[in-house]
Design a protein around this nucleic acid. Sequence first.
DNA 1: GTAACTGCAAAATATTTGCATCCTT
DNA 2: AAGGATGCAAATATTTTGCAGTTAC
Lengths: 138, 138
Amino acid sequence: MDVQIDLILKRNQLSVTGSRMKILELFLESKGALAHGDIEKRTGEKFDRVTVYRTLQIFLEKGIIHNIPTSDNSVRYALCTNDCSEGHHHDNHVHFVCSACSNTTCLADVMVPSVKLPVGFSPEESQMVVTGICKDCK
Amino acid sequence: MDVQIDLILKRNQLSVTGSRMKILELFLESKGALAHGDIEKRTGEKFDRVTVYRTLQIFLEKGIIHNIPTSDNSVRYALCTNDCSEGHHHDNHVHFVCSACSNTTCLADVMVPSVKLPVGFSPEESQMVVTGICKDCK
DNA sequence: GTAACTGCAAAATATTTGCATCCTT
DNA sequence: AAGGATGCAAATATTTTGCAGTTAC
């Protein structure tokens, strides 16, 4: 059991339970984003589907993970960077979706550029998704 | 009945039917993006749910509409600009999602900036979504 | 007239809710 | 011990599929 996992959960006033540790571990060790289905598969079908839903839900609320935009109808989640706090996310890097393997990668070093909006629009958050071929499918 | 609607359908080798005309009309008159649910509501519940699914599906295939990324789990569609052709979309403007009214607006004049990707990644398409307060909710 | 489109029924999936039980604190 | 988390069952919601009847061309 990783100390880091323990810490993250406690910092967010969450009980440290098996499913939460396991799911959080998954996020920590996977570079990219996970869909609900990925989690069910990769945890080895150990948890109830409902538990996964509820765990993702509460991680989202606590700001441990955020969901990233996708064009298909899948919902994907990724770990927030350290400075995310409850209800206030700062995940300003670009996400890359591979059209071959359909994995989503966080390009942590590529910041989302800011754009000039028409008058009347006030931005709160920007997200950017680039589709293409990732380095593993090259 | 609008000539434009007729033209768009014929140009894409689609039969001109009531539901297609109506749904296409909805897209033409709404500035922003529509979710499946919006379409069911705004057409006045006239069409079968399945027809809406199938119509969106074929519009998507033909390149009449494209889907835009969202962070919540909704799937939204917007009209393609004129130069979209089958399987090859050029919809390079930014989309704006209002966190108050939750409408999605196409910012046709704001292009998606290009970013430099890490080595190994080849981009095919970029999409950008800005969340905030739109000019109507100001 | 023929091929394509629609609507209905139903299947397959996905998500949410309630509640009794179990586990963390 | 108490409150929260889990798992099961079941209620909802969403999307897909098959097929017979209807419509556009």
